[in-house]
C-alpha cells in the first residue's frame, strides 16, 4: 500500500503471515459474535439502593473520583424539619447552632436555615459533600431517614466495574436503567 518499495520477502513467509492473519480475523469475528450476544443495547448506570446502604464510608474513599461521585441527597417530603437534627448535629452538641464543633458533617456541607418556629430546613451543598454518610447514619438511626446517599450522575464516570460496588459490604450498588438513574426513598416505603 504505502511502502515505497516492496520488501523482497519469500512467498512462504507471506503465506504464513496471511494464514495467521486469517486465523486472527476468525478469532476476532468469533469474539465479536460472542460479545455482541452478551452485550445489551440498553444503557445502565450505577446507583445505590438507599434501603440497603449501611453507611460504611466506603463511598467516600473507594470512588475513583475525588471527592466521590456519591453524595448525600435530602428528600424534603420525608424530612421532619427537626430543630435537633441528628443528621446535622453531633450526638451531644454544645449548643444547637451552626458552630463547626456542633456539626456532624466533616466539611460543613449541610446548610441549616430557620423556617417558622420550630422548623429548620436542611440543604446539602453538593460541591462540599464527600459522601461519607455520617449525616445519613445520624438521620437513619434517630430521624426519618430523609438523608441518604446517591450516585450523582453529573460526576460519576460510570466505570464498567465500579470500585465502590466491589467494596460495598451490603451489595447496595446496582445497575439501573440510564433513563431512570436514581433510587430515591419515599414516604410510602417507610411507613
Amino acid at each position: 500500500m504505502s511502502a515505497p518499495m516492496d520488501k523482497p520477502e519469500s512467498s512462504r513467509r507471506q503465506f504464513f503471515n496471511g494464514t495467521v492473519r486469517g486465523a486472527f480475523l476468525f478469532l476476532l469475528g468469533a469474539a465479536t459474535t460472542l460479545l455482541f450476544r452478551r452485550s445489551q443495547p440498553k444503557r445502565t448506570v450505577w446507583q445505590i439502593d438507599p434501603y440497603k446502604c449501611i453507611c460504611c464510608t466506603n463511598c467516600a474513599t473507594k470512588c475513583v473520583m475525588h471527592p466521590s461521585a456519591v453524595k448525600c441527597v435530602q428528600v424534603y417530603p420525608m424530612c421532619g424539619y427537626c430543630k435537633l437534627c441528628t443528621g446535622y448535629f453531633e450526638p451531644e452538641p454544645i449548643s444547637l447552632d451552626t458552630g463547626a464543633e456542633n456539626q456532624l458533617c466533616p466539611t460543613g456541607a449541610i446548610k441549616r436555615r430557620q423556617l417558622e418556629d420550630p422548623y429548620y430546613e436542611y440543604n446539602i451543598d453538593e460541591p462540599l459533600c464527600i459522601g461519607c454518610a455520617k449525616c445519613v447514619k445520624g438521620c437513619v438511626l434517630f430521624g426519618n431517614g430523609s438523608f441518604f446517599l446517591q450516585v450523582r450522575h453529573d460526576r460519576c464516570v460510570n466505570c464498567d466495574e465500579c470500585a465502590i460496588a466491589i467494596a460495598c459490604p451490603s451489595q447496595a450498588f446496582q445497575r439501573v436503567p440510564a433513563d431512570k438513574p436514581y433510587l430515591f426513598k419515599n414516604r410510602e416505603h417507610q411507613a
Partner: peptide, 19 residues
C-alpha cells in the same frame, strides 16, 4: 437500619415552597 417516619413532616402555614 433504613429509618422509619419518627417525625411526621410538618404542615407549614405561610407559603413555604419545598425545594
Amino acid at each position: 437500619a433504613f429509618g422509619v417516619e419518627r417525625f411526621p413532616p410538618p404542615e407549614f402555614d405561610a407559603g413555604y415552597k419545598m425545594p
